[in-house]
Design a protein around this nucleic acid. Structure first.
Lengths: 199, 199
DNA sequence: CATATAGTTCAAGACCGCGTGAACTGCACC
DNA sequence: GGTGCAGTTCACGCGGTCTTGAACTATATG
């Protein structure tokens, strides 16, 4: 638990001892936000990145960093960094409301695009590296005498296997993008105001 | 008894010393083993599980726990647990050589099958959970009055999105299995002709 | 210019998973 | 029965990651 945060600041003016933290978050919101957090974590990102995006997405309207901090019970610094990441990936947008001075943040709809994109990059770099390693191993093995042909064959098999895993991955990413992307596209069109676009 | 043996094949005058450890692993073997370790880690397993499997696969012949321990510089307990996992997943087989009393371990070729299988399970349970959560959230949201229709729609969109991610995943797993599996099948024919002596 | 509030950065610490090593079990052989 | 080794289990500690909290910068306001 987070215990009693904010004891440090907040001199008297704020009488509301208030059931701290996420009291503001409706139960159903909490569940949904948590779900997004889980999904995003599953894909190798930080859980809280997902929670932040989820909140922004559910609310629909841009929130300030302070609001996010309160709703999700995160630290100021943490929110700042999380938002930086999300913004950097293009799944959250920083917007300025006309006469107000603070930044607000809004969710883009293409979370999935971000996931596939980042995963793709990650995986591409990774597979390249593995391939290089296996090639290197093979070179060395051939160089050093006395390695049985049998073993060389095994090495080679490994490399082929890596190639195929790679192909499968690429295929996955592509289909996933098409499939999910298509649906999201449908949303994007009229979705925000119009009902669910079905396909 | 063999006094101090640790030599798989020949008993005899090899008694001495223990040259400190992983010196035994040829450089090219080390690289390949490491590569497998990385791959397997990438898929959410333990790096050392991959290293063990990789070693067994490269060597072709069954090794004892002690040998693995030495080659990969792991602890006795660690090797035991790693082997248990691998065996449990069916990617390593425990074999008994006729006259000898110790267990030996041999790599099955279908590492990929294991990965897809476990990933599939993991993911299935996970997706189910997410779905349930979103459904629950929706129920709550509908129950509690005063939730804007707009927000309900967002929730629903999330669920649809989850469905599609799921479909993409299933598709991926299927293709991956077909693709890689096919290749492996080809291997299996001519390649391991003698590796599977014991069964 | 002084002050307050929004936002950023980073060192310190909480947290968590993995592997280690030691204690333990079981088995084979003397 | 006793000895020695293979194999298992588990509490602890190390290492890496994420979050916090405080110091710091930037920007608006009187």
């Amino acid at each position: 638990m987070k215990g009693y945060l904010w004891t440090g600041g907040d001199p008297g003016s704020q009488k509301t001892v208030a059931p701290p933290e996420n009291g503001r978050l409706a139960p159903w919101e909490a569940i949904a936000v948590e779900a997004v957090g889980n999904v995003i974590e599953f894909w190798g990102f930080k859980r809280n990145q997902g929670r932040v995006w989820g909140l922004l997405y559910l609310r629909g309207e841009p929130l300030t960093a302070g609001e996010i901090e309160r709703e999700l019970d995160l630290s100021k610094g943490g929110v700042s960094m999380l938002l930086r990441d999300l913004e950097h990936w293009g799944v959250v947008q920083r917007v300025r409301v006309p006469q107000d001075t603070v930044w607000r943040y809004a969710a883009e709809t293409d979370l999935v695009r971000m996931v596939t994109h980042v995963v793709e990059e990650r995986e591409a770099a990774f597979v390249t590296r593995i391939r290089a390693d296996l090639a290197e191993a093979r070179r060395l093995a051939e160089g050093a005498g006395g390695v049985q042909a049998e073993k060389l064959r095994r090495l080679e098999r490994m490399a082929v296997l890596a190639d195929h895993v790679e192909r499968a991955l690429r295929l996955f990413i592509k289909t996933s993008r098409l499939d999910v992307g298509g649906v999201l596209g449908a949303f994007r069109d009229g979705a925000l105001s119009r009902g669910k676009a079905e396909r």
